[in-house]
Each structure stands twice: as C-alpha cells, then as structure tokens.
C-alpha cells in the first residue's frame, strides 16, 4: 500500500540530493539548508511516533533544526546556471506543444488517481492509503509526469534531478515559507495568540452577529495583507483569531469555503499594496512607468469589485 509517508521519503531523498550537489560545489549554507530540511521528511514519521510515545527529544531536535533553518536562510546566497538561450529556443521549436503535456499530466493524473482510488485494490487492501489520498496521488502523479517528460525530451534522471535542484536553489528559502507559516499558525494557536485576538475582537464587535464576524475576518485579511504584502502571512493570524474560533466553531461556517475564499480575499489586498513589490512595483520599473504606483492604480477597480464578490461568496457559500 502506498501512503503519503512514502511520498515524504521521496521529497526527503530529493532534498538530500540537492544538498549533496550544493556541498560538492562548496555552497555550504545552501547545502546545510536542504540537508536540515530533508531530515523533516526522512525522519518525520519517527519524530511523530516518538512524540506519541512520550519521547520528546526528537521533536525538540527538530525544533532546533527549524531555528537553524531560519538562521541559514538569513545568511545564504544563491546563484544558478541553465542551458543557453539558443539551445532552449531550438528545442522549443523541435518539441513544440509536446513540452506542455508532461506538465499538464501532474494535475490531471493526480485527479484521475483521486477519483479512481476507491477502485484501485489489490485483493482486499486498497493500493493507496485512504487518509491522505490527494497528497499521495500528487506524489505518484509527479513520478508519472517525470517518466513522461524523460521520454518526451529523451533526457536522463540525473539531468532531471540537476534541473529540479536548479529550480529549488532559485526558489531558495522562499520555497519553505508556506510550510513555516503553517507551522506559525499552529504555534500561534498553541500559545494563545488566537484566543487573545478573539478576545480583542470580542471587545470591538458584537460576536453574536455572523455578519459582523465575517466582516471583521474579510477586512482583517485585506488589511493584514496590505500591511505585510503577503496574504499567506495574514492567513494564520486571521484564522487563529477570527476564522476558527468565531466563524467555524461559533457560527458553523464551512471550513473549506472559508479557507479558500478567505485566502483569495487576502489576494485582493495583494493587488492594492506596494509592499508586494515583486508584483506591483518591480513591473512598474520593468515597464519604465514614470509613476511607480501605475500598476496598482490599474488594479484598484478589479481588486475592490472582486473583494465585494468574495464577501458575497463567503456569505452565501460558507453558511449554507
């Protein structure tokens, strides 16, 4: 039976390969970063087992590892290389739209396995562990897509690992941000940050009103996103403070709807803020606009209209 744990080992192995490749090029901080991270995937299962049995040191060691990742990220520098422009143009012409097929295979195969999982059986046991079907399917789909890509490009596994590692290094510590923000959400919930925010919100608005809570949540998402330039960072704060305690637990909002559309409400804030410099300021410079807020100006009407739509969607879909 394939479970999500096997997929995690695969991730760990890939991170380990990236660490070794960096170490051989003497890029030590990058190598150390991926090495520490691979530990969470290769040994994650053991950490959770140990915690369940009351042995705390593996989890504490992992905690130290996370702090080390933070320090390494702040010290690391990165650069990478790729094939030459002409080579890529030439092969783009040769392979044409066939290049898209393996990439599209990732979501399509994932979907096919998720939908087919109940029928994939070996005797009486299902082939894919039921608890995290989507995640396990995603891992399998990546392997299928890789085989497909290797066939299309007539390339080799080491080549694909080298290219994957190139992308991983370019992403650098940013790749880790969603995972760390989710961790922060858990830490905030456990240390009472969520309760403290909920308590403050209670003083400001009538929490018995569903509309007041939803308004506070939606505008909180936008406001925090505008301040921080990042909806991901706003999400754990607003969910721990308002989304979970007030909307989901008190008023019975549908968690999936609240999460998905709540996040997209934050995205409306991203369209409005110069803090999201990558998206809003950098293009103004690239396009030689005299007004550095020109792109934001062009986005304001779309962002505000979409914010209204999101609010309505939350209201009608989350409380069905």
């Amino acid at each position: 039976m394939i479970s999500v744990e096997h997929i995690y080992w695969l991730v760990g192995a890939f991170l380990l390969v990236a660490a070794i490749m960096n170490a051989r090029e003497r890029r030590w901080s990058m190598a150390a970063f991926w090495f520490v991270l691979s530990g969470a995937f290769l040994l994650g299962d053991l950490v959770q087992l140990a915690t369940a049995e009351g042995v705390r040191w593996p989890a504490q060691a992992m905690g130290l590892g996370v702090i080390a990742l933070g320090l390494l990220a702040a010290s690391g520098t990165m650069q990478s290389k790729t094939s030459s422009e002409e080579q890529r143009r030439e092969s783009a012409q040769r392979l044409g739209n066939r290049l898209f097929a393996p990439a599209l295979a990732i979501p399509l195969v994932t979907l096919a396995i998720v939908l087919g999982a109940p029928y994939l059986r070996w005797g009486n046991a299902s082939l894919i562990d039921g608890a995290h079907v989507t995640l396990a399917s995603l891992g399998i789909a990546c392997l299928v897509a890789l085989a497909f890509a290797l066939r299309t490009t007539r390339s080799t596994v080491p080549q694909s690992l080298a290219q994957g590692r190139r992308l991983l290094d370019t992403l650098g510590c940013v790749a880790l941000l969603p995972m760390l923000l989710a961790t922060l959400g858990s830490v905030f919930a456990a240390t009472g940050v969520g309760d403290a925010i909920a308590d403050l919100v209670e003083m400001l608005i009538p929490i018995d009103s569903r509309l007041a809570c939803l308004t506070a949540f939606a505008f909180g998402m936008v406001l925090f996103t505008v301040i921080m330039g990042n909806a991901f960072a706003a999400f754990p704060v607003m969910m721990a403070g308002i989304g979970l305690p007030l909307l989901v637990l008190k008023h019975g909002a549908e968690p999936a709807v609240l999460g998905a559309i709540g996040m997209l409400t934050g995205y409306c804030g991203t369209l409005l803020t110069p803090m999201a410099a990558n998206f809003n300021i950098v293009p103004a410079v690239l396009l030689e606009l005299p007004d550095q807020y020109g792109v934001i100006r062009a986005q304001v009407p779309t962002a505000l209209l979409l914010l209204a739509v999101n609010f309505a969607l939350l209201w009608y879909l989350a409380f069905r």
């Binding site: 890939f14 094939s83 092969s91 783009a92 290049l99 990439a103 890509a149 490009t153 290219q163 590692r165």
Partner: peptide, 15 residues
Amino acid sequence: VLTLPVIGLLEHYGL
C-alpha cells in the same frame, strides 16, 4: 518540490 524535476527538465528543453 516533487514537481520541480519535471518542470525544471521541461524548462531546460524550452518550455
């Protein structure tokens, strides 16, 4: 990150 070897390879070949 498991998608990266696939995407990286395709980009190398001109995606």
